[in-house]
Design a protein around this nucleic acid. Sequence first.
DNA 1: AATCATTCCAACCGCGCGATT
DNA 2: TAATCGCGCGGTTGGAATGAT
Length: 286
Amino acid sequence: MIMNSSKVRNFKSVGSNNSYENGTELRRGPWTLEEDNLLIQYISCHGEGRWNSLAKCAGLKRTGKSCRLRWLNYLKPDIKRGNLTPHEQLLILELHSKWGNRWSKIAQHLPGRTDNEIKNYWRTRVQKQARQLKVDSNSKKFLEAIRTHWMPRLLEKMEQNNSSLNSSPSSSISTLETQNFTAPSPVFNQAHLPSPNVVNNSDMSNLTVKIPEILTPGKNFHAKSLEDDCYHVDNIPSYDMQELEYQDILLSGRQVAENDWFEDLGSAFWNTDELWQFRKPEEVGV
DNA sequence: AATCATTCCAACCGCGCGATT
DNA sequence: TAATCGCGCGGTTGGAATGAT
């Protein structure tokens, strides 16, 4: 992948404090096509690693760190481009609920996706929704919203993909995106999910997603507590009592709609074609 | 058409950890 | 054992692209 030429326009060299010991100035900012080619050629011949010496040996006036970043996030051949699939989005939501901001760890389970990409996705898409709803993205309210609204919607989306795949064998949608999922109907307590429940390796063909138990049959979609439903979030601070009051209103999928906040969320959340787009809070009365 | 605001993402930075000397 | 080095991670930023007014 060649860098966007518009980025090249703004290339700037570094100041005097960025230099090798021999006085050669280091470059910063967007990479040029020439630099990309140098890095690709060098790595194809010598492999990765020893980034500082690699940078020098390759004739790049860059820090090893910069070379590593450019390679891992952009130039590496198996980097996957384009929008995240519903499957990948669901994985991110689920894995983030387990591991928090452990982006590299999460990325290990999404082949071709980088930690940087996943981090950006979380900040620009997921946290945006939290901001629009005026809730903290780490708050219990928002996490429950993800679990009870977003995840089922993604599963539904995947089911749609699956259907179109079945009806259209020549579809370009990869079977890897759908084969391990049986998406539930929008009525959450009818959710049917695959097993086992664990993301078990980095091979996408073998990936399965652990869905919170709240979405599994027999749970009747009734949240009790974080402990009860095995919803683990490593880095989430303890909730204050006001937050905990929401325990009382986390009801079933249908009952949830009676709660103002969730009703607004629910209607705002899924009425658009794009999975991500809430309407603005004021438009939906939040 | 011009200006301003927002979104998105590539790239940078600081820090911590493990390996090496 | 302490000092140094190299690497990887998570957080943050800069600016192009896009949208709104």
